Simulated scan of single mutants.
Amino acid sequence: MLSEQSVPVVRATLPAVGAALGEITDRFYARLFSAHPELLRDLFNRGNQADGTQKQALAGAIAGFAGMLVDRPGTRPDAVLSRIAHKHASLGVTSEQYKTVQRHLFDAIAEVLGDAVTPAVAAAWDEVYWLMANALIAREAQLYETAGVVEGDVWRPMLVTGRHRETPDVVSFTLRAADGGPNGRFLPGQYVGVQAELPDGARQIRQYSLSRGPGRAEWRISVKRLRSGPGPEGEVSSWLHANLGAGQTVMVSAPFGGLTLPEGDGPLLLASAGVGVTPMLSMLDELATTGSARRVIVAHADRSPDDHAHRDELARLAAALPHGECHLWYEDPDGCAPGARAGRTDLGALELPEGLTAYLCGPLPYLRAVRGDLLHHGVPAADIHYEVFGPDLWLGQE
């Protein structure tokens, strides 16, 4: 909660700061990477920097958090903060790095806003920053403790034991600990960071869901190759597709991610699009392995049956549940997927039971559309959970 003296200062300056956040984040990242080029090379996603989405996410996080502090002082965007903390943990972010970010961010604010940044304004916004930063640091400390690792020390080599092409654009890799020890436990729905050493020497990191349940001897990730033309976007997935094979080792983080299978016996909706099916496969595998009697509604959308990674596996796992059902939508059904519907996901075609808990994973437009449909059908917002891969541009809409 903001101090009494800071609330009116932040409220009065929020419009000006918000209007300038685009320029502030541009200057911030320029300063940060000039002073610490290793952060862009080995920590920050170069694709998200190139297309501007990371800057948008940072600006949205600052503005959204500050607005909540002054307008709803008794609340905090815990779901958003948790998603950010899990992502940071999978990158090995440390508490010391928040000090580096603060220094370059506030230098950028002073450069853009000039004399408007009085000592009182600087102190108030510093308080905003550290309220958010300390919340993240505390959550990340809990995640590291749960994972049984020292702060930031999340990496270990894993051996690729197999490679399988699922679709023209998706390849699965099976993994086990390179030292022959146990892989370790994870919760169904979690992801790992994967570090790729690229030809220019960068060690870029991307997150991939574990696409089978935790009861398996080996982990599996399913990597979709992004085809966005030249530039850094898609550089890691393309490298993994072209270079990673059985017998090689790759650096993999401990598992993180808050979109996990809930305990209990209430009905579930597992809704996904594209490669967003991967955490749902892990949840379904665990449900089938444990003989769950829950009602489970699977709803998946894709471009076509040929583009649907793990299509047969998804249907088989849903059918293995006594109260499981699988509904498919394809933009181009092409006649080879009996029972699939044409077009995009239509929850109005399904019978949604009372007490439903929904889990969503897919592109942001898909998440927005399906979440809106669920709210329209009376599912409480608190019972709708989603995972965003890439910068979270949906801040403040919990």
Rank of each mutant, 00 (worst) to 15 (best):
R11A: 13
R11L: 12
T13V: 03
L14H: 02
L14C: 01
L21S: 05
L21P: 07
I24M: 01
R27C: 09
F28W: 05
Y29A: 08
A30G: 07
L39D: 05
F44I: 06
R46N: 04
G47P: 07
G47S: 06
G47R: 08
N48Q: 13
A50P: 02
D51V: 02
G52F: 02
T53C: 05
K55M: 10
K55P: 08
Q56P: 11
L58K: 01
G60N: 03
G67K: 00
R76T: 14
D78I: 06
V80K: 11
S82I: 11
K87L: 13
K87P: 10
G92Q: 06
V93Y: 03
S95M: 14
E96S: 14
Q97T: 09
V101S: 11
Q102V: 14
R103T: 14
F106T: 09
D107I: 14
A108W: 02
V112T: 03
L113F: 08
A116C: 11
V117P: 09
T118I: 08
P119T: 00
A120M: 10
D126F: 13
M132K: 10
A133P: 02
A133W: 02
I137F: 03
A138I: 01
E140V: 03
E140N: 01
E140G: 00
V149H: 09
E151L: 08
R163T: 02
D169W: 15
T174R: 10
N183G: 10
L187F: 13
Q190R: 11
Y191E: 09
G193W: 06
E197F: 15
D200P: 03
G201A: 00
G201E: 00
Q207A: 10
Y208K: 06
S211C: 14
R212L: 14
R216N: 10
S222F: 06
R225D: 05
S228E: 15
G229H: 14
G234C: 04
E235A: 15
A242F: 12
N243M: 15
L244I: 04
A246W: 05
G247T: 04
T249S: 13
T249E: 08
S253G: 08
P255H: 06
L259G: 02
T260D: 04
G266R: 07
T278W: 12
P279Y: 05
L287W: 02
T289L: 13
S292V: 05
V296D: 06
A299I: 05
A301H: 01
A309D: 09
A309W: 11
A315C: 12
L317A: 00
A319Q: 08
P322F: 03
W329P: 02
Y330Q: 01
D334W: 11
P338Y: 10
P338S: 10
G339Y: 07
R341V: 10
R341F: 11
G343T: 01
D346T: 10
E354H: 13
L356W: 02
T357S: 10
L360G: 01
P363W: 00
H376G: 07
V379M: 05
A381T: 11
H385E: 01
E387M: 03
F389G: 04
G390S: 05
D392M: 12
D392Q: 12
L393A: 06
E398F: 09
